[in-house]
Each structure stands twice: as structure tokens, then as C-alpha cells.
Design a protein around this nucleic acid. Structure first.
Ligand code: FES
Ligand code: FES
Lengths: 147, 147
DNA sequence: TTGGTAAAGGACAAAAATGTCCGGTATTTG
DNA sequence: CAAATACCGGACATTTTTGTCCTTTACCAA
């Protein structure tokens, strides 16, 4: 579905969001990678992208780390993260790989595929990081699986 | 969504199916690649996989080529092709990349994501190659886009 | 039977995704 | 100021995906 980079990015963002909501404290890279079960250095690259797009916030130095502002918690959607990392191909492209998804020259799956793709778009668009973070906080969702 | 290999495989299978239905004649690799706009040699590899899985049929030598039997046209689904090439990860895996998608330790998107993934599964399961081929035959679907 | 034809299969090549390492830079604390 | 900390950025390494080439194998027709 999504690339590894994107999966890590989403899980990291939610974890950061959870900590920001919960204790208002910043979290370091090592902490994040451990909590979501991702390779540390690679996760760093992904987070850099999200910082550049201002979907998450970072602070250098001691007491530094990653955090989500109240505004970011409220407004940043899953969709923004997916687009920032994977681009829009999966959200707009043709299911059978035609260069253009369009009703002008649709692939044979086009009209059946569209509603599903639309639902996926809607799903990503209507879920904020803050909302998902609170789900994790309440024990209703996990970012890593244990024994 | 799907890998390039899978996209080529689906489009190729539909084209072969269309020709089998239409004129009952086999089609060669060169023909296929030209008609669906895919790299010839790479497409060959993908078709080999499908032949091994008995989702399509091939015949060597003069008058040889690829074809779909009447039974294959009727029974082979999109899902079988996707599974043969890409495996089941996209059809069963977690949206956020957790090692297991399960209600026991679900990711925060699990319950929202599941219905969409189920619809996708259903879509692939209920569409046969023959059905899609006839759509192409009737000019209601395309496997390649032109100027 | 023989020669041509087309898929099968193996080896190889290029590109992209994934993952690692390390020096640089900003920030905080003593 | 000095030292420690933690993200930043670039280079590099590995793996997977995508794509190519060439020989072998099977088949058909003359
Ligand atoms: S043209 Fe294939 S999904 Fe729209
Ligand atoms: S656990 Fe993530 S989709 Fe089911």
C-alpha cells in the first residue's frame, strides 16, 4: 500500500503526537525508533522530510527532539504525510498503471476502482494526527506489536 | 497500488483474453507489449509466472503464443493474478506496516481501513479476466492510452 | 526430417527503495 | 566560553524492483 518510508513516517508522527499531547515533552530519534519498531537512521531521513514540510517540528540540542504543536496536532492529516513522502500517485493514479487515470480513456477497472480510491482519499483526508494519537493514548491503537 | 510487474501482468492477461474471445487466435509477446505499452522482455518474465500458475496458457513454436482457454476466461480473477505476482501483502497487510494486521493489537487506522481493504479484495475477487476483456472489446475500457 | 519460429530460462544491467555512517550545525547547560 | 546533546545533511552500502540480452527448448510446417 504505502512505502516503508511512508509507514515509518506515519507511525512516527503519531507517536510524536501522542507524547506531545500526553506530556508535552519532546521525543528523540532513538526513542521514536524504539517505540515504533523502525530503523533509526532511516527514520531520521523520513522525519527530516516531514520537518521541511512543516508537518512536524524539531528542536536541536539538549532537551531537543521532535514535537507537534497544538496546531499541527489539530490540522495535520494523514493525507498530508502520505503526499509528502509517497507523492500523489497512489491517490490519483490508475489501478492498472495507465499514464493517466481519466474517464476519457479509462482502463477496464476504472469505474469500479474509483469509489474505493475515493474512500481511501477521504479516509486519509479526515483523520488528523492528533486524533490518531489520542487513540493510541487510550490503548485503542498500537504503533508496534509485542510478543 | 500494484507493482509494475503486476500492472503489466493484468493488462497483458486482459489483452490476451480479449484476443482469445474475439478471434480465438494466440498473440505473441511483441504484439502484447505493443498493445499494452510495456517493455517486451520484462513482460515476458511476468507472463512466465502466470503460465506457471496456470492463469494463462502458452504454446511454443510457429502459430504459438499466449492464449486463455474458455475455462480460464470464465474463472481466472484479477485477484489470482495479483496474488501470483505481488503476493498477499497488500490484500491482507496492515496499512501502517505493522507485522500483523489483527484486532488483537490493531494500528490506529485498523477499523477505518478494514472496510476499504475488504472492498478492494471483493473487487478483485469478483472480476474475471473474461469480463474485463469483453469490456475492452466493446470499447468501454482501454489497456493503453493514445495521443 | 529439417528449418524456422516463439516461448522458457539464465545471466546480467540499471534504477529505485531501503538502510547506514559520519562530520557539521544549532542549542542548552554548567 | 566550553562541553555535551540531538537534529541536519551528504555520502555511501545493500536490497529489491525493473529492465535487457542471449542461449536453449519445444513446436509447427513444409
Ligand atoms: S483509468 Fe485506470 S483507474 Fe482510472
Ligand atoms: S492493524 Fe493496521 S490495518 Fe489492521
Amino acid at each position: 500500500m504505502f512505502s516503508k518510508a511512508c509507514e515509518y513516517g506515519i507511525r512516527a508522527a503519531i507517536y510524536i503526537g501522542q507524547q506531545s499531547t500526553d506530556s508535552g515533552r519532546r521525543v528523540g530519534l532513538k526513542d521514536i525508533a524504539a517505540e515504533i519498531g523502525s530503523p533509526e537512521a532511516f527514520t531520521a531521513k523520513v522525519l527530516q522530510q516531514l520537518v521541511r514540510e512543516q508537518l512536524i517540528t524539531s528542536v536541536k540540542g539538549p532537551t531537543g527532539g521532535f514535537e507537534l504543536t497544538a496546531e499541527q496536532l489539530r490540522t495535520v492529516t494523514l493525507r498530508q504525510i502520505v503526499v509528502a513522502i509517497d507523492g500523489g500517485a497512489m491517490l490519483q493514479g490508475c489501478a492498472l498503471g495507465l499514464p493517466q487515470c481519466s474517464a476519457r480513456q479509462p482502463c477496464p477497472m476504472h469505474y469500479q476502482f474509483l469509489p474505493i480510491r475515493d474512500q481511501l482519499n477521504e479516509l486519509l483526508r479526515t483523520h488528523t494526527i492528533g486524533e490518531l494519537a489520542s487513540k493510541v493514548h487510550d490503548g485503542l491503537g498500537f504503533l508496534k506489536q509485542f510478543g
